[in-house]
Design a protein around this nucleic acid. Structure first.
Length: 305
RNA sequence: GGUACCAUAGCUCAGUUGGUAGAGCAACGGACUGAAAAUCCGUGUGUCCCUGGUUCAAUUCCAGGUGGUACCA
């Protein structure tokens, strides 16, 4: 039995197809607890197949949170996720000493672990106007304006990344204060401990398993799911691997075979970006993807010490 | 069997009037504070098919070989 007074959040990280779902289910059953999904796409209920949500059997094995919670028509972001999850954790920690969180969205994980600085909600009209300007005039004028409004931010920002520049400008314009003035650069304190677990799978096997997973999605009807969502293809949640490629096929821009090959390629690149992101956590404990018993043993040792 | 053309990066192909080579895609590495499965940045990884000849120097020119493609038999 666990005698710790402080509650523990166990985060399972790893690239797509590394076995996070299976591992977290085993952990949840072993510790008799619940699972929170830290995945920026599995939370949309219309996108089940393409985001590889756990199947009915898996979902029935323990309580899952945040899967299919939103509609693709809802606006959502990492800051909202931070608030929702910290609130949810308060409830769950009343029932459990340990809670599992699993998923591949690095920024959402950061939001839960360290928090995101409080900034007034984005003004969509300003964002829209800036995006228009970017489309018409290019990035240069926006960069120039940012240099005027927030020289400090301009120093550090990725100047070729239009989304970053637009975001910074949008905050400057809607708040009247420099974007950089909102950044505290200090992680928030949480009243629970965190144990970061990373799943490791060698690249060759990972790529093989990605292909298998995509074959499964196609069998389950990914094309049909994508076709249903095609009318909404402009929505942000649908800018997602597995859907955008099919949308291009529906637009007759590429063949179906090309779309599937693109899904494979883009998923591999996505996995690499996830691996890259996960390297930033110096306190991550790495395990081979199929060694859940070792993870359980490790957690029990950590809890007792 | 004969003739012509081709052989350069993982793939498709440039190129070197002879001084050991570069694009796209792929691959790989990285950044990330309210769009993050998004967005952006960086890196060339090579027996220039093989053997011989000419030359100070051959991936480049010449000869032969091997493989491929097309056409003729």
């Amino acid at each position: 039995m666990l005698h710790n007074t402080k509650k523990l959040l166990i985060s399972i990280s790893g690239p797509t197809a590394s076995g996070k779902t299976a591992a977290s289910l085993q952990l949840a059953k072993h510790f008799n607890t619940e699972i929170i999904s830290c995945d920026s796409r599995q939370m949309y209920r219309e996108m089940k197949i393409g985001t590889a949500v756990p199947d009915k059997k898996e979902l029935a094995q323990c309580s899952h949170h945040f899967i299919g919670k939103l509609s693709i028509h809802d606006y959502y972001n990492a800051s909202m996720f931070e608030i929702d999850i910290t609130n949810l954790l308060k409830t769950l920690f009343n029932k459990h000493n340990i809670v599992i969180m699993t998923g591949g969205s690095g920024m959402y994980l950061d939001a839960v672990l360290y928090g995101i600085d409080k900034i007034p909600d984005p003004d969509m009209n300003i964002r829209e106007a800036l995006t228009q300007r970017y489309n018409n005039e290019g990035l240069e004028p926006l960069r120039f304006e940012l240099r005027k409004l927030d020289p400090d931010c301009y120093e550090h920002i990725d100047k070729k990344n239009h989304k970053r520049v637009i975001r910074a400008l949008e905050v400057c314009l809607s708040t009247g204060k420099p974007f950089s003035s909102f950044h505290t650069r200090t992680p928030k304190k949480r009243d629970f401990d965190v144990l970061l677990i990373g799943l490791n799978k060698n690249r060759t096997l990972l790529y093989h398993d990605i292909d298998t997973r995509i074959d499964n999605m196609l069998e389950k009807g990914l094309e049909e799911e994508a076709r249903k969502l095609y009318p909404h293809k402009g929505l942000v949640p649908l800018k997602t691997i597995g859907y955008t490629e099919f949308f291009r096929y529906f637009d007759k821009e590429i063949s179906k075979e090309q779309a599937i090959q693109l899904i494979r390629k883009n998923t591999r690149q996505y996995a690499r970006k996830q691996i890259n992101w996960q390297k930033r956590y110096k306190v991550m404990h790495w395990f081979e993807y199929n060694k859940t018993q070792e993870i359980i043993h490790f957690i029990e040792q950590e809890v007792q010490s």
